[in-house]
Design a protein around this nucleic acid. Structure first.
Lengths: 356, 356
DNA sequence: TATCCTGTCTGAAACCATTTAGGGACGCAC
DNA sequence: GTGCGTCCCTAAATGGTTTCAGACAGGATA
């Protein structure tokens, strides 16, 4: 590989001038500039990112730490971040924590010596990111939190409006006539679960709905959790007429359990998920869900990180993206105890719209 | 951050000795070695990967280039590779090509100056990887191909036995009594599509089945392709009684089209996919598929890359993983023209087993 | 005409944190 | 005294960025 010295020789200029031309760090007259660029193109020279990073104390690397790329919500986030990173000349290093706090620490430590410019993190369970991030910030790296926030997070972040999205979903069910609405929440130590529950409860309160204690279930964000908790819910009396799931995977588990219990969704029970994964279109029945764009989440996070690299003193930003209630075939008005349908006054889409 | 110089001072040894202790590149007597290690632990020192890479002409980075992390088959591959990389002290840089050959070239060029030890590539359409990889190999990097091979590929690779897997799937349908079997293949310029088709045809030939020309359809590896081609197939006379899809996404499209045409799977038409994605369990009906482990594919690829880093002269390896036919509810014996079921002699699992 | 700027460039050097070749000190055996 | 290991140190090298003193041309100014 050609190095800068060779370019300097070829162009008949000094080493420093080549650097200045390449980085625009000083004025260089056109003829000289052109000679340098010609030499660069002729040799296909590319500056060593390693030497550059070593000297500048920072590389064009963004590190991304997520729970698990196998969770279908995260690929979108990664893709959004990668697109923004790449188009700005940055590369993305990907790490999976399996939601394990100690793995997160390991990754954080292992990445440090690569001197990434930024860190995009979807915190693990019980993440201690607030403390860890401090040492990165001291080293001049940007740290952005995505999707959920660790305790006491005071840095840049990108999330969706979970409360609002959850409120719309609950309100939609209420508008259809549902009064016996169960919630299968994700882990309550996660801020997104907390915010979603807040939205559900706000809607319940506005409609003066008081649910029996067992109507609230907490589980992990996966299908088996949704499956197990739904089995419990279906045994309760009165049986819920609708389930609000903490995310789509939980909802998939719910659909499975409902099917196994020889019940029918949406005739016997309605289900709404959260995330709006592509797969919601192919389930049986197609799942209604509060859509959030993982891609936008990741893209915004990468942009935030790059902005902070450019200006470390700008005020902290807290981006909140909108969600969108997508109604598919997994919801219907509840049947009353006689098996007849409760009359619905509002039109089908009205509840979501009026909830704005 | 502490650097080696500080460790050397703390331990009262020279710079070189610290390096030798850390890398085991020379004998160092125990008392000295201990003094060095004590200093390392006391300071939490971590060697700079940048300086190390600059000097050694190689970093502990594996670059992974895939078509698109949003395609649900690829996260497994990435995860497998990341796990193996991480546990060996390597980091994974992820790049998406969107199957665009020119994007692949861009990534290949951009990554070069990070001096990755290895490259794990799922080639894009019409990839020119064979030429590109050469310059990497000259620079001492390992290049491993996964899932599909570019033209004239002569390096390390990991794929599954597509032909065998496809053969089993086709044979299973034949065993159920199907004779009118359509194929919706992925792009025929991809080696995995070619190999799968080879397997289908081998089974047809063995059963002396000759399909009408229109029973073979080629499309892209996505749902919309499968949907469109299935619409065409369902209009043909005689209508196929079964569809072999090039992958699961195509099969999902097929299920959708079948549903839209008011036909029923598997009663009217059976469908088998390829890949065995998790989602095959949640479709309606659950999709039969030829399972292949993306995780194993990625893990094996990373291992191959690391092995080659360790020994660049070892013979080239070509790993071929097994597939597994997973039968779910999307297959049934064909109805004959009267609507009655064709009698099946073989037991339900026999065809797959005897095909071994 | 002499002087002073100003803008542009050179050349040299320091620096980043490591690896590694080469050499020297030392002890021991012959 | 010589030869030979063993152990450790010194110093060069990796490929850039950045600083600094100084050269040099050309225009403005006195």
């Amino acid at each position: 590989m050609a190095n800068m010295k060779k370019i300097a020789e070829l162009a008949g200029v000094s080493l420093g001038t080549v650097s200045h031309v390449l980085n625009g760090t000083a004025r260089v007259r056109e003829p000289l500039r052109k000679r340098v660029m010609d030499a660069v193109h002729a040799t296909g020279y590319q500056p060593s990112q390693l030497a550059r990073g070593l000297r500048r104390d920072k590389t064009n690397i963004l590190a991304m730490i997520i729970p698990d790329i196998l969770n279908p919500f995260f690929p979108g986030v990664v893709r959004g971040a990668e697109d923004v990173a790449f188009s700005n000349g940055y590369r993305l290093v990907l790490c999976n924590t399996d939601n394990d706090h100690s793995k997160e620490v390991m990754h954080l430590n292992a990445l440090r010596t690569y001197l990434p410019s930024g860190l995009i993190v979807i915190p693990s369970d019980f993440s201690d990111l607030t403390a860890q991030a401090e040492s990165y910030r001291r080293a001049g790296a940007a740290v952005v939190c995505v999707d959920r926030l660790p305790r006491n997070w005071a840095g840049d972040s990108v999330i969706v409006d979970n409360t609002e999205g959850a409120f719309h979903a609950a309100n939609y069910l209420i508008g259809l006539g549902h009064r016996q609405i169960a919630v299968i929440s994700g882990p309550m130590h996660l801020t997104n679960s907390q915010d979603r529950l807040k939205g559900f409860r706000r809607a319940f309160k506005a409609a003066k709905i008081e649910s029996p204690h067992g109507y609230f279930q907490e589980t992990t964000f996966d299908r088996s959790g949704g499956y197990a908790k739904t089995k419990i819910l279906l045994k309760m009396l009165p049986r819920p007429t609708a389930i609000l799931a903490g995310n789509d995977l939980i909802a998939f588990g719910a659909l499975l359990a409902i099917h196994e219990e020889k019940l029918h969704c949406p005739d016997d029970i309605s289900v709404i998920g959260f995330d709006g994964l592509d797969l919601t279109e192919t389930t049986s029945p197609p799942l209604s869900s509060v859509y959030q764009s993982g891609y936008q989440l990741g893209a915004a996070a990468a942009q935030l990180a790059l902005d902070r690299v450019a200006d470390s003193n700008s005020p902290i930003r807290h981006v909140v993206l909108k969600t969108e209630l997508r109604i598919r075939e997994s919801v219907a008005p509840p049947k009353n105890t006689n098996g007849a349908t409760v009359p619905v006054k509002k039109s089908r889409v009205a509840p979501a719209l009026t909830a704005q």
